[in-house]
Nucleic acid binder design. Structure first.
Lengths: 225, 225
DNA sequence: CGTGATCTTGAGGGAATTCAATGTCGGTGG
DNA sequence: CCACCGACATTGAATTCCCTCAAGATCACG
């Protein structure tokens, strides 16, 4: 492989493996890192820790037991966000509002700390965290896609791309059918057939294979369930 | 702090035609939050930005174009990590090493900054970011599960749970079959059948419905693909 | 010992994949 | 400019896998 030289200032030396230190080199305090602000709380089996839509004021770290986060989709299906075991932290949200509810699977004790008690001093820290939480959200959105049918996946993918492109009624896809298939966990044939089907029902039209026109966005949103 | 200026070689790969990327006239810098440390760089269509397994030294923010991250699974299938559009940041890793490779889908310009140049002052900031990146990693692992077959999903789920419980050869599941099904995007019947099947092939045994014994962990790992 | 919740098992159907062939587009050279 | 070629995309037929619907089995608990 060939190299191209750039002039960059380096604040740190490489370590012994000739690698730069990790992004997060600070040693990790044990699960009790919440420190003296933390308050203990217990939940019985099936008890709700918080509900979807409530204000997201607290972070939780599990001492004993197990918690699941979940949400009910519009079609009645239930999606599990994650399972949390002792040592895990949950309750981080990008928004001020809970996007999932949380329930204790077994008798559970947690430590609780107010989110606002954790201050980040630098704009960089806030920005990095914000970016990471956003990517986490996008990934969770993808999980939401992957538990659905092929038609819902493709419709959801198109809507997501349109959203991120800030375009309203048509998009020029930069990726191949194979890329889309690998992204959605489908085969290229299924993606192609599904797009054809979406066109045949009038939800989209396909002037060229990568140019998607949203003829009926409402229909598309409906197919996304 | 004194910064030492070094001439660093940057492993931007040649493109598929074995040429260095053209130095395109970069449009508006519109310097994102990366600030003055950011360096501009361009990639042509299909050019690799970085490869899986390489040291993760840089963060990227897209100015124009589109990038996809991907990895090849052991069975030859390819998984897309994400698509990144102008404004998006990519290259954040929990580890020192790239878990995906990144390729430009179209002609793309990015701003690059060394991640070590982004200093987080407090342990809290580091800790929060670390937790979020870990959750992001877990979620990406889940995406990896969801693009596979039912058998691979269940096997992968069991291995993940065992891993997170720090137990070697058996686990007591705290969640119901319905919880597992909703987590894996399967039906409760498929989960049950798959567990029965795993038992019949000797990979696990089921003393009780929630007590899983790993009779043959190697077989289980193989089924996970 | 019943009763409801949870889990397993079975049969049939539907959705997505696989395998195969055809069609379309962009680039390259004659 | 057109013909050709390879990459990409669409379409078709058969199969596989998972879901749906239904019934039975097991477990927890009063």
């Amino acid at each position: 492989m060939s190299m191209q030289a750039l002039d960059i200032t380096v604040p740190f030396a490489r370590n012994h493996r000739n690698q730069f230190p990790a992004l997060l080199p600070v040693p990790v305090p044990a699960p009790g890192w919440f420190g003296p602000m933390a308050v203990s709380h217990s939940f019985v089996r099936n008890e709700e820790v918080y509900g979807e839509g409530e204000p997201a004021e607290y972070l939780y770290t599990i001492q004993t037991g197990c918690v699941r986060t979940s949400k009910i989709l519009t079609d009645g299906r239930r999606q599990i966000g994650a399972f949390y075991l002792p040592g895990d932290v949950f309750g981080l949200e990008a928004d001020d509002v809970r996007s999932f509810s949380a329930e204790a699977l077994t008798a559970t004790t947690v430590h609780v700390v107010k989110r606002t008690a954790l201050f980040l001093r630098t704009a960089t820290a806030n920005q990095l965290l914000k970016l990471t939480v956003e990517e986490l959200n996008r990934t969770q959105g993808r999980v939401l896609l992957l538990i659905k049918s092929a038609q819902e996946r493709v419709a959801g993918f198109l809507l997501e791309m349109a959203n991120r492109c800030h375009t309203s009624d048509d998009i020029e896809l930069p990726m191949s059918r194979q890329d889309i298939a690998d992204y959605l966990g489908l085969t290229i044939e299924t993606v192609s057939r599904t797009l054809t089907h979406l066109e045949s029902v009038g939800a989209i039209s396909l002037p060229t294979s990568r140019h998607i026109v949203f003829s009926n966005r409402a229909a598309l949103a409906r197919l996304n369930a």
